[in-house]
Design a protein around this nucleic acid. Structure first.
Lengths: 185, 185
DNA sequence: ATAATATTGTGTTTTTTTTCACAATAATTG
DNA sequence: CAATTATTGTGAAAAAAAACACAATATTAT
């Protein structure tokens, strides 16, 4: 909405775009504070800033991508990551052809140096874009190096200690959800 | 577990891997039928087959990818899609350099032929891997051509009629969720 | 054959999430 | 300035999801 040049909006409009009810928008926001004006709605710029504060976007999170195959490369070039709080600063791969190269100003390091580089740069977030077979091993090494949160694209279930947050992006499961929908009306 | 050579497993073990309680595994399965044996658990092969039936994997869903950039290419080569029910059979792009090429046995067509090809092949599922600016336009054309379900990678909210199912993969939002976790202990 | 163990399926309870309902507030119209 | 309209924030109600508790059943051990 900000990009559309708008100044303010109602919870109803937010809900319309997020496909949820206005009342849920307000309830959810209310657990963090009061950001709107009765009868007028929310100032878009202000609300965005408040949400960024809530999420923790004021601090910039530096991220490592492990695995520079097709998916890893796509992530390095993903425009959504350019302007936001989360910046990919390091990539790792085991392929000598790739090591040393730079993609979109992100240097690709040898996966053997993963512990050293993660620790040196004090990274806390890692993205797993390796083949499934290597994912668990990479995760173990990342955690040993101080990584606290993971985004996993490998279609396997990874085991991590309780204090490590892991979010799985299981594309096959998502497509299966669509197939389920089509099969059942 | 099947790949590990195992024959049967308990709901507790499934829950452990999916990070949910055993009781939830059983409750969820129970809405579709009784697949286990008291005291013995589930036959892995049998349970897998039953779940595939539930999801609708017996029929093979042919899928189109729109946008053959880095992400689109990664999807065409994604190993998770090879062995499963969902097979990518067509890709579209507007770049003359790409049109006519074949990636992993998937032919890339001119985006201008999208309506014709989707209809001719009777496709029902589409994956949006275009730049954000073009996503809504592409979606409109897909729906006009008979597409009923969409997986959207463009970081924009797309509007579709009520009878069309759309699942958004918002990578930025996922990273923000990790940032939120790290900020709040 | 009996006891001990493992584990399912499900009715009930608890917890969480979502929705409703409405008083309060701000702006606009007549 | 009173009435009307738009819209928030929130307590209460309703709905949905998750967890509990346990009878039933299958296997293994003694």
């Amino acid at each position: 909405m900000e990009k559309e040049g708008r100044i303010s909006c109602s919870s109803y409009e937010i809900g319309e775009r997020a496909d949820i009810l206005d009342t849920k928008v307000r309830k959810d926001l209310s657990s963090f504070g009061q950001f709107g004006i009765a009868g007028r709605g929310y100032k878009i710029k202000n609300l965005k800033k408040k949400i960024e504060e809530i999420i923790g976007k004021d601090s910039i999170w530096k991220i490592a991508v492990i695995g520079v195959g097709n998916l890893g490369t796509a992530l390095l070039k993903y425009p959504g990551f350019k302007e936001e709080c989360c910046k990919i600063v390091l990539a790792f791969d085991s392929d000598p052809q790739k090591i040393g190269k730079i993609i979109d100003s992100v240097p690709i390091y040898d996966i053997e140096s993963i512990e050293r580089e993660i620790r040196k740069n004090n990274l806390k977030i890692g993205i797993i874009a390796t083949p499934s077979e290597e994912a668990q091993n990479v995760v173990n090494r990342l955690i040993k190096s101080g990584i606290k949160a993971l985004l996993n694209f490998a279609p396997v279930s990874l085991s991590v200690p309780d204090d490590i947050k892991i979010i799985d992006i299981d594309l096959t499961a998502r497509l299966e959800a669509l197939a389920y929908y089509l099969t059942h009306k």
